[in-house]
Design a protein around this nucleic acid. Structure first.
Length: 434
RNA sequence: CGGGGCGUGGCGCAGUCUGGUAGCGCACCUGCUUUGGGAGCAGGGGGUCGGAGGUUCGAAUCCUCUCGCCCCGACCA
């Protein structure tokens, strides 16, 4: 995933100096102020150039880890027929959260809130033999759930982007392997996104099942309450090869699943926190395969019903979760892995011939090196440029001004630490170009 | 779905109680001066006050209905 460098004079970046009145939590405020999103109606947003870059970076990491875990990408439609939901029995169960529509022939359709029925239907049409299993299929697609009360910007939208993966196995042991593979992939995914995610025992909810973990990012603005063993806080996980069994041995539970009378953690080590749910994995056996008649033939000729699990990540929720976890009073602080650009090149004085020539040279060199650079070539005052760069939170700022040009230096600032260094051009570029 | 709040130029707001024909800051456009942390001066453009009815000589302001958005709670990924 590598985006083109851009000049700020042509890049569509409608940043706001003031906070729109409707935004209450910091991620919503900063996403609006940084020109990442534009609200269309309650819980429905357009993604602007800066926002879509971040979203696609996140998608790229999720995709790589899903592929790495052995899942294969597909793409199912957003619009589904009511028929398959009647087969599973969920058409009536789902209630008013489901957006129901009819086409011109009065056929009942719906905007998919999830895809268990659809993926099961695909496999029912194409799976015949036990040799076709195990199988994990995932897609990254927009979903719609008609929330009673959308809120917190993209965090709790009605339309949202979700990665959902579905596993199909011959038996429980196979399902458990799939579950663990996804568990590990999730830990790696969130670590690569710069997040510390806590896997907690969860209530599988209306979707059913009996083995379920949610992945939460600890944040004040989280909507879920979780209880966990303080051991998590000083856990140093090896994300390349996480010890899942050890991790699952550490107590963590969502509020509904937490029973104080039956909690193995001594009170002094039990912590309560708010979490943003960014992932949910669960095993649900044959709930859908059975109701929808998905079977394969085993070696001995017996027909069996595959066991399934599903594994979701709230993709469009993640930019907000990352901002909640990584910002300061001046704006967003993007982790390198999801930053919309790696470097903000700031020309402090565009009408100074030396500044201009040097910036153009640097921009060309960064572009040739494939570094994602946002070049602020606008005729604005230094203060406005600094404030804007801090707001949009690019990991590095390379500042070129008349003072430095005379001295033969540029300033390199690390957004996360605020640390600034006066460096020669070559050593600054050496830091930015791997 | 219960409770509360808000809709006035792109954004943030005042004006509404007490009716008299719309204002401030930022942003935008032009010019000049500025240029290392959201500049100064001068000039300028942009608003059927969410919408529809009603009361009145006259409605952003009063009344009725309606639409939208936000917050708390319940619910949910």
């Amino acid at each position: 995933m590598n985006f083109k460098p851009m000049r700020l004079s042509v890049f569509f970046l409608p940043t706001l100096k003031e906070t729109p009145a409707e935004a209450q939590i910091v991620s919503h405020r900063l996403m609006l102020r940084a020109g990442m999103i534009h609200q269309e109606s309650a819980g429905i947003y357009s993604w602007l150039p800066l926002g879509i870059r971040v979203l696609k970076k996140i998608e790229g990491i999720i995709r790589a880890e899903q592929d790495g875990a052995g899942a294969q990408e597909i793409l199912m439609p957003t619009i589904q027929s009511a028929d398959i939901w009647r087969e599973s029995g969920r058409y009536d169960d789902y209630g008013r959260e489901m957006l129901r529509i009819t086409d011109r022939h009065d056929r009942e359709m719906l905007y998919g809130p999830t895809n268990e029925e659809m993926v099961t239907g695909i496999l029912r049409d194409h799976l015949r033999s036990y040799r076709d299993l195990p199988l994990m299929l995932y897609h990254i697609q927009w979903k719609f759930r008609d929330e009673v009360r959308p809120r917190f910007g993209i965090m709790r939208g009605r339309e949202f982007l979700m990665k959902d993966c579905y596993s199909f196995d011959l038996d429980f042991e196979g399902s458990k392997r799939a579950y663990n593979a996804m568990f590990a992939a999730y830990l790696r995914t969130f670590a690569r996104l710069g997040l510390k995610a806590v896997p907690v025992v969860a209530d599988p909810g209306a979707i059913g099942g009996n083995m379920s973990h949610e992945f939460h990012i600890l944040a004040e603005t989280g909507e879920s309450t979780i209880f966990y063993d303080a051991a998590y806080d000083d856990l140093d996980l090896d994300m390349e090869n996480p010890d899942i069994e050890a991790l699952r041995g550490i107590y963590a539970a969502e509020e509904e699943k937490h029973d104080p009378a039956d909690c193995p953690v001594p009170p002094e080590r039990l912590k309560q926190a708010k979490g943003i749910e960014v992932g949910h994995i669960f095993y649900f056996g044959t709930k859908y395969s059975k109701s929808m008649g998905l079977t394969v033939t085993k070696a001995d000729g017996e027909e069996i019903t595959p066991e399934m699990g599903s594994y979701g990540i709230g993709v469009s929720r993640l930019p907000a979760a990352i901002i909640e976890a990584s910002h300061d009073e001046n704006g967003i602080v993007w982790p390198d892995s999801v930053a919309p650009f790696q470097v903000g090149l700031v020309n402090l004085k565009t009408n100074d011939a030396d500044c201009l020539a040097l910036c153009e040279d640097i921009y060309a060199r960064l572009e040739n090196a494939g570094i994602e650079t946002l070049y602020d070539d606008r005729d604005e005052r230094p203060g406005a440029k600094f404030a804007n760069m801090d707001l949009i939170g690019l990991p590095w700022q390379l500042v070129v001004g008349p003072r430095g040009v005379k001295a033969g230096t540029v300033e390199l600032k690390r957004r996360a630490s605020g640390e600034k260094e006066e460096l020669s051009l070559d050593s600054a570029l050496a830091r930015l170009i791997p």
